[in-house]
Each structure stands twice: as structure tokens, then as C-alpha cells.
Nucleic acid binder design. Structure first.
Lengths: 288, 288
DNA sequence: ATGACGTAAGTCGTCCTACAACTCAACCTA
DNA sequence: TAGGTTGAGTTGTAGGACGACTTACGTCAT
């Protein structure tokens, strides 16, 4: 990156070809050299450039702030540095910092008070098991301090049911992978997962790998990133759901019936997750 | 407040004086007379100033846009006007519009695409029963197109249990109002609500009014505005919960066990709402 | 001393202006 | 016709300025 095109300044590495100044528009000058600059101690300026493309700057900052909060750098109730300070720290504009903070606020992580400051929400850290955050079950379990594991009970291809076709936006009778697994936390069963995945999005090799570990990991390798899920909640009492030696006696479950969408709005998985009542704490932060 | 301090300028009126080049900078005068100005046709400029104090400008705009979307002015998948247009329409800056849109985005109502525009989310309108939106049950029922009603089954004062004291941050043995009600939609029972409210926040007159209608309405009259709730979800199977002629046979409920907080972070109500399974659709939009 | 009041500094909210980065469709060229 | 280029439109970020609110502190009269 010879002539440092100010694109995403700061966090280097970036899309731009290493070759030369892309002739943007007109004589857009801006001859400043937005790099170098001696590193102030404690600066978070270079902390952002994630693995690869991580969304907008604001989201990157939000992500980083979030992890700082989660790791206890700011304890619940504590005040964050002012927006201006944070902006200087990360080397971004205050506008960007504000979008980041707005995001965290909407997630209930912080609490912005006009004229006073931004404070870490009192719950905040407990919330991380919250449903509204889209993440895989295994991921959630691990963050709660347990060791997740899975056991495949069934994994076969079949034609999609009418209901499934509707949810996944498929042709009638299209083939799907029917995956049934038990989910464990520290060896204790916490949920039974029924996943349905359209075959067409997978090649043969994927089918096997879907069994063990996180399904989402496999999706990532083929460029499918989960962006949203729309979920329905139900209480279920049935003996037909669980299996195996740890099958719970009373057969009472909290059902999360959800369709997953990628960032283009295309559905790529339909799953019913039956959580054994009492083994898993679901928390929702409701805001206005 | 004699001298009309320009507080929330904008609607009604307008920031800039129609007179002449605003001097800005140092001698901060601002001698404008903040009224008049003919109404452009179709302008939403004056649509904001709600009942009274409605939060920041950005939130007001968000609220108004939200209702426009809900009322079908923009159908799912449709593109909203550009940020600049909306800003002109409401007579606010683009920054403000952006904060509003960010809010709607975080609620899953719209979908912002860089370089392309802002689109109404495909689900969007279904979501309005979503849990993460904090609103009273009656409000939710009404928005779903049913007529809500309530029936008080019990309403007495007693000492708070240990568990309740912990949740509500009370002294041991403090008095609370124990309210038990059945919730109906178009005459059909959909939920059983167990509410616990500290007495100290109420006067005698309030106690009666708590019985009928929305509890939140009563709270509003004494200046308590619900800002957040932290809720736990459970599946419950029991015959001890419901009562009355419409008592459901199988006794299967989705329990929303929640503590409500006002904007200062003080808990003011602890409630357990048992929703009769199958009668009420809970939808959650999960995002990352 | 004490309490009411005004003042000033700090911080979030909004505005303005100017670009940068991205998308999409129309156009042009090979 | 196929493919690349251009340009207009839209969201994202920057920077500077000021309004509105909160808080702490100092002043002053009691």
C-alpha cells in the first residue's frame, strides 16, 4: 500500500489493490498522510481489522467495545470514556463511535444518559445468553462456561415436507438433510435439535461434516453467513421428542422453532430446538 | 418560562430564522421567532411532537416512521425514501434520521444496504408481536387486531416473599400488592398474569385502579415510565395456575418471568405471565 | 455553618458540509 | 451481443460547531 488511499484509514490491510492510487472521481485531493503517527500508549487504533471483511467501521468498533465490556474492562455501572475520547482512541470520527454505541445500547449492553455519559448496563454481562443475539447453541454454551458437545442421532436425506418447503422457500418435494442431534453441556443433555437443510446448498463432503460440531462452522466454509433468524417460541410436553439414556422424564421442553437467513435474506436452515426445561436459562432484555 | 427558550426547535417551526444569514459562531444570538412558516403539502414536519416529552428527536422520528411502516404506507420489501428526503420531510438533519433508522434496523424492522437504500424488512410487519419490544400485554393484543380485556381474580396486599424482595430490591417483609388477573383477547383467555407491585410506590386510590385496564397506564400517571424489562422464559405444565370456566385442560403454559425497570433503573414490578400454549404467538427476531 | 442559587465544565444530541464507498442501471465499446 | 465504463443516487465516515442536559463547585444571603 504505497500511496495510502484513505479508505478505511486506520486499520490497514484493505480491499484496495496494492498497486496505485485508484483514480477516484475528480481531483479529490486530501493529501494528508493518514498513517504512521507515533502510537500513543494504550491506543486501540489498530485493534479493529478483524479476520477479513467485518462490516462497517461502526460495527467493528461496537464489536471491539463489546468484547472489552464482556472481559470486564468496564464493570457494570461504570462509565465509559466520553464519545470524543473513544473516537480519538480508535482513530475514528465521533459519528462512527456514536453508531457503535447506539448499537450496543439497542442490545441493552450500555445505557446512554444525555449530559452525563454512557454507562455499562447493570445486567449487561448476564445478558450474554440472551436469545435475541443470534449465535449457535454450542457458542452460547461455551460462553456460559460449559463444554459443549453433540451426538448425532440421525442424519439422512429425504423429501421436504410441505411445511418445511414453505419455510425454506423450496420446490415441492425437494431433498433435504434431516439432522437430529442431542446437545450436551459438560456431558449433561440440555437440548434436542432437529435441523432441516436443503441439499442443494451442500456437496457430498459437507453432508458428513454436518454431523459433528457446529453446523454454522460448515456453512461458513461455503460462504453462507447467518444474518438473521425469525423464531417462534412454544411450550411443549411430549415423550416423542427426546431419546437416549438421559431422556428427561417429564418431557417438558421450551421449543425454539426458527428459520435462519443469510445476509441476502435467503433461508438456509429450518430448525426446531427443544430445550429441556430447567437446564437452560433463557433471558430476554426488552426495551422500548 | 417566559422567554421562549428554543428547546426542541424543529417541528413546529424551524431551526433557522427565515430572516437572514445566521450569524452563528461567537455572538450566539438566535433572535428567531420560532413559529409560522407555511406547511408544505405532504410534509411530516409537524407530525412529531407527541403528547408531551417523547425522548430524543431521533426516537420521535423512529416512532413515527415505525407507525407509517406498520400502517402499510411502505409494504415489506419496499424502499424507503432516501435519508436526505426523509430529513427534509421531517425538517431534521440527516444525522437525526440516521439514528432513527439505526434504531428501526436494530429492531429488525428495516434493512439498510450501503449504496442502495433502506428497505422494509420482509418479516417486519409480522414482528409486531415480538417479545423484545417492551409493551403491555393489552397493547400487544390490540395491535394484533383483537379486543383485549381483563378480569381480576385476586387483588390484595401482603408481605413480599424473599424471592420477590430480591427481585424488587425491597426490605424484608415489605408490603406488596398481589394482583392476579386473566387476560382475554376477543373474550377468549390467552394468559394468566401474576403481578407483584411494591405498595410504597402507590397511594390508596391507585390500588383500586390497578384492577381494571392496563397497569402501565396507572404507572404513567404517577410518572413511572417502564424503560426495560429483563425476562426469563420457561415452559410450565401445571394445574395450579389457571382458574375460571375457561381454564385450559392440558395446563401447558409459556411463562414470561420478568422484572420491570423504570428509566432510572429502579425495579417497580415483578410479574409472571403464563401464556396459554397455542393461543399466543411469540416471535423473536434474532440478529447479529 | 448552611442551604439556595448561579456558574462553569463535561457530555450527549443535533446540525451542517463535504467526501468516500458502494450499488445499479444506462451507455458505450469491442 | 457481451463486457466494461461511466455516472447518478444512496448510505457510511469525517470534522467542526453549537444546543441541551447533568453534575460539581463556588458564591452569597440567611
Amino acid at each position: 500500500m504505497s500511496t495510502p488511499t484513505p479508505k478505511s484509514q486506520a486499520f490497514d490491510t484493505e480491499t484496495r489493490p496494492a498497486t496505485d492510487p485508484p483514480v477516484q472521481n475528480l481531483p479529490k485531493v486530501r493529501d494528508d498522510a493518514p498513517v504512521s503517527i507515533s502510537d500513543r500508549t494504550g491506543s486501540n487504533r489498530s485493534a479493529l481489522n478483524a479476520p477479513s471483511e467485518s462490516g462497517s467501521l461502526g460495527r467493528q468498533v461496537a464489536k471491539h467495545l463489546r468484547s472489552r465490556i464482556m472481559q470486564g474492562e468496564f464493570s457494570p455501572g461504570a462509565r465509559l470514556p466520553s464519545e470524543t475520547e473513544i473516537a480519538l482512541d480508535y482513530g475514528v470520527s465521533r459519528v462512527t463511535v456514536r453508531t457503535a454505541i447506539k448499537l450496543l445500547e439497542s442490545q441493552g449492553l450500555v445505557d446512554v444518559r444525555h449530559g452525563s455519559g454512557t454507562f455499562v448496563s447493570d445486567f449487561g454481562t448476564e445478558i450474554k445468553a440472551g436469545i435475541q443475539e443470534l449465535r449457535s447453541i454450542t457458542e452460547t454454551i461455551r460462553e456460559m462456561g460449559f463444554e459443549p458437545s453433540m451426538e448425532r442421532h440421525k442424519g439422512e436425506t429425504r423429501a421436504a415436507s410441505e411445511h418445511e418447503s414453505a419455510r425454506l422457500d423450496l420446490m415441492a418435494g425437494e431433498q433435504v438433510l434431516d439432522l437430529q442431534r442431542a446437545v450436551f453441556a459438560d456431558g449433561e443433555v440440555v437440548a434436542y435439535s432437529y435441523d432441516v437443510i436443503p441439499i442443494k446448498t451442500l456437496d457430498a463432503q459437507m453432508l458428513e461434516r454436518m454431523g459433528q460440531g457446529s453446523v454454522f462452522k460448515v456453512f461458513e466454509t461455503i460462504g453462507i453467513t447467518p444474518a438473521r433468524a425469525i423464531a417462534e417460541l412454544h411450550a411443549v410436553s411430549s415423550q416423542e421428542i427426546a431419546w437416549g439414556p438421559q431422556k428427561p422424564e417429564q418431557g417438558l421442553f421450551l421449543l425454539l422453532d426458527q428459520v435462519h437467513f443469510d445476509k441476502d435474506g435467503k433461508p438456509f436452515m429450518y430448525s426446531k430446538s427443544y430445550f429441556v426445561e430447567g437446564r437452560f436459562q433463557f433471558v430476554i432484555l426488552r426495551t422500548r
